[in-house]
Each structure stands twice: as structure tokens, then as C-alpha cells.
Simulated scan of single mutants.
Amino acid sequence: MRNLILLLALAGTVFGIGCGGSNQDAGSATPVEQQEAAWAKMMEVHDAVMPKMAEMNRVSRELKALAEGLEDKTQLELINNAVENLEAASEGMMVWMGELQQPKKLREEKSHEEIMNYLNAETEEITQVQEDMLSSLEQGQTLLKELQAETAAE
């Protein structure tokens, strides 16, 4: 009987070590670790789309150049709308970055729950900025290709 108890205790210990592992779940992570993970998740979205800013500026400049001297009001309106969308999306990124607060600064004034709510809201906001940037860039690139093809055909 005593050997059975020792065997069960040993099996329980091995099972506990095997299942416990070194991976931390959200329940065992400290508040700072949770905040840093939320920050990292948010910044992944930012870092994925930020490099698109240069391409957005290039497309905007090229569209503006094509608009110079253009008399077709329909095409001019399409160009102006595309440029406005590109500039608004770019401005959205700049505003978001300018208003973003670091978790370290937030910890001076806010509770963990408030910080997590803030980071979740900022993740939603940067995701919307990403969608705006990608859709305006796609729209601008498509229009630019169409206009360049028309110009080449003339």
C-alpha cells in the first residue's frame, strides 16, 4: 500500500511538471507581462503597415503629377478622391502615433484594467488605420495604373 501511495505521488509530480511546463498563460502572467504582450500585439499591426507610408506618398505624388493639365473632370475627380484618401490615411497614422502613450507612462496614473482597455482600444484604432491605408493605397495604385495605361495608349 505504501509503495502504491509513493508511486501515485511520483506520477502526480511528473504529470504536474509535464503539464505545467514553462509556458505562461494569461492567468499566470503578471500585469506588466500582460500589458507588454498587448503592446506587442498592437505594434505588430503598426509595424506591418508603417512601411507602406512611402508607397502611399509615391502614389499620391504620381497621381498629382498626372492631374496637372488634365481637363477630363471625371478623371480629375477620381484623382482628387484617391489623393484625399491617401492623405487622410497617412494623417490617420501620424495622429495615432502622435497620441499613443507608452505603457510605462500609463502605469504612473492608471490601473492595470485601464491600461489593458486603453491598449485594446488602440489596437482597434491601429487596425482601422491599417485598413484605411491598405484600401486607399490599393485604390490609388489601381487608378494610377489605369491612367498610365491610358496615357501610354495615346
Rank of each mutant, 00 (worst) to 15 (best):
M1Q: 13
L4K: 07
L6H: 11
L8W: 04
A9F: 02
A11M: 09
G16W: 06
G18L: 11
G18T: 10
C19A: 15
S22T: 12
N23Q: 15
N23Y: 11
G27P: 07
A29V: 14
A29Q: 15
T30S: 15
P31G: 04
A37T: 02
W39V: 03
K41M: 07
K41R: 15
M42D: 02
V45T: 14
H46V: 15
D47Q: 12
A48G: 10
V49L: 08
M50I: 11
A54H: 08
R58D: 01
K64F: 10
K64Q: 14
L66P: 00
K73I: 03
T74E: 09
Q75W: 07
L76P: 00
N85E: 14
L86N: 01
L86T: 03
A88D: 11
V95W: 02
G98T: 04
L100W: 05
Q101T: 08
K105N: 09
L106C: 03
R107Q: 08
R107K: 13
R107W: 06
E108G: 03
E109Q: 11
H112Y: 00
E114R: 03
N117Q: 15
N117H: 13
L119E: 00
A121I: 03
A121Q: 10
E122G: 03
T123H: 08
E124G: 14
I126P: 01
T127I: 03
V129Q: 01
V129G: 02
L137H: 00
Q139A: 05
Q139V: 00
G140I: 00
Q141M: 07
L143T: 00
L143M: 03
E150F: 12
A152K: 14
A152R: 07
E154N: 15
